[in-house]
Nucleic acid binder design. Structure first.
Length: 394
RNA sequence: GGAGAGAUGGCUGAGCGGUCAAAAGCAGCAGACUGUAAAUCUGCCGGGCAUUGCCCUACGGAGGUUCGAACCCUCCUCUCUCCA
């Protein structure tokens, strides 16, 4: 176990099991079980994967077909959102996020850094931290590296993210450099802020590489963050509006420079195609709002490409959404029914859609892992991409 | 039987002399969504051409006033409310 030597968070260990080209097969151990990588982490910002109960999340497929590979092993939640509602005191009193939501798997919390970016109109970034107004009631709050680590620790998560600044796309080299250096200073402060006492539930801590779309900055950032005593390293500041080619330039140039003995996490990405391409670049962890949000907006992922379930062509379509899919949705109802529910504004439609999309992502990653295990990832990826992107015939 | 109100594009419903092919919402048809202020947002939505633009058919029906009418007048048809 690699992290035994690096001596970071005592409950967190990462094992790199196998490589297939740059693609990596691994697993890490947390307070709440083992997580097999490459992994996709469904987003549950407010301690809830939207439109799903925790139990539905555990049972995305029927009966005995429920496999550990197709049940999420780790979820995301968000520091910023949870500190505003329901509040950290309450969350801590009720036993942390996991207990709160009845979830026994692992949880990774985002530090709130992304909200500094996405809620830019109501914040003020300083060296010390970020002062911002709640989007809920306008009240004034403050988040710093120390505060963020403290909150994430009190939430009881398995993996905490360092507090970073996510610069928006289009900023100058000088501005991104300034922002990146701030992120680096905040990274050191995040590490220093980790509770030292033994026996305390101390989350693993991941650092975040920034640097925008500038190769020299990315290189500097990954070297700097990679040399710090983090348990994992993430690429942040990506898919914030930049063209896809630029995003992959960043991923492909950064991933090989990330420490090989720690999990490599690409934040906020992406489409099924993005996941395949990023695994090929050596990424181990992903999270993205896309499967859940798109599900609620009627955009469903299938092995043959995307389906907009509200489209008239599905009104009379008796087939399952994806004939190859083993999720509850595909095993129990038709496209026609899903369209009917969605068009009618039925809540069950959102539930079925979300079950499917989350399952699709988890299933895709399970197949990715199998492919790497059998040294056939390149072939698998190509076959997958060809089907995902071809013209849909039916 | 009497008194009043009203009929507008698939529906609800604004407009009450020109800037009206006609607000808005709904329905319909598409599209977007990448560390979630999102069950959200955007576009199209009488027909036919077309580069701005043009032509046709349209505001219950038939006439009329006017340079010009969904808007004013007359009659007709139908609907609703109230009083007998």
């Amino acid at each position: 176990m690699l992290s035994a030597e690096s001596g970071v968070a005592e409950h967190f260990t990462f094992e790199l099991l196998k490589v297939d080209g740059p693609a990596r097969l691994g697993r890490f151990h947390t307070f709440h079980g083992v997580v097999n990588t490459p992994v996709f982490m469904p987003v549950g910002t407010l301690a809830s994967v939207k439109a799903m109960t925790t139990d539905q999340l555990r049972h995305l497929t029927l009966g005995t077909h429920n496999s550990g590979l197709r049940t999420p092993e780790i979820l995301l939640c968000n520091t910023y959102h949870l500190m505003l509602r329901p509040g950290i005191d309450l969350l801590e009193r009720l036993g942390g996020v996991q207990r709160f939501m009845g979830w026994d798997g692992a949880v990774l919390s985002d530090s709130g850094g992304f909200q500094v970016f996405s809620l830019a109109s109501i914040r003020n970034v300083k060296e010390e931290g970020v002062e911002f107004r709640s989007h809920l009631d306008g009240s004034l709050h403050f988040l710093s590296p120390e505060k963020s680590v403290e909150i994430q620790t009190r939430m009881g998560v398995d993996i905490a993210m360092a507090f970073d600044e996510c610069p928006s796309y289009g900023l100058s080299h000088a501005d991104v450099e300034r922002s990146m250096e701030l992120t680096h200073r905040w990274a050191r402060r995040s590490l220093a802020a980790r509770p030292a006492e033994a026996g305390r539930h101390t989350p693993a801590l991941f650092g975040i590489v920034q640097g925008g779309v500038y190769p020299d900055l990315r290189k500097r950032s990954v070297e700097e963050i990679g040399s710090m005593d983090f348990d994992g390293v993430a690429i942040g500041g990506v898919s914030v509006g930049e063209p896809k080619e630029e995003m992959f330039e960043v991923i492909c140039s950064t991933a090989p420079l990330m420490p090989g003995d720690k999990p490599r996490y690409l934040m906020g990405v992406g489409t099924p195609e993005d996941l395949l391409d990023s695994v090929a670049a050596g990424i181990d962890m992903f999270d993205c709002v896309m499967p859940t949000r798109n599900a609620r907006n009627g955009s469903l992922f299938t092995s043959g490409g995307k389906i907009a379930i509200k489209n008239a062509q599905y009104a009379d379509d008796p087939r399952p959404l994806d004939g190859e899919c083993g999720c509850v949705t595909c095993r129990t109802v038709s496209r026609a029914y899903l369209r009917h529910l969605f068009v009618g504004g039925e809540i069950a439609g959102l539930v079925y859609n979300t079950i499917h999309n989350v399952f699709f992502y988890l299933d895709l990653m399970a197949k990715v892992r199998q492919a790497i295990a059998s040294n056939s990832f390149a072939t698998f990826r190509e076959a997958c991409l060809a089907r995902l992107t071809r013209e849909r015939e039916s």
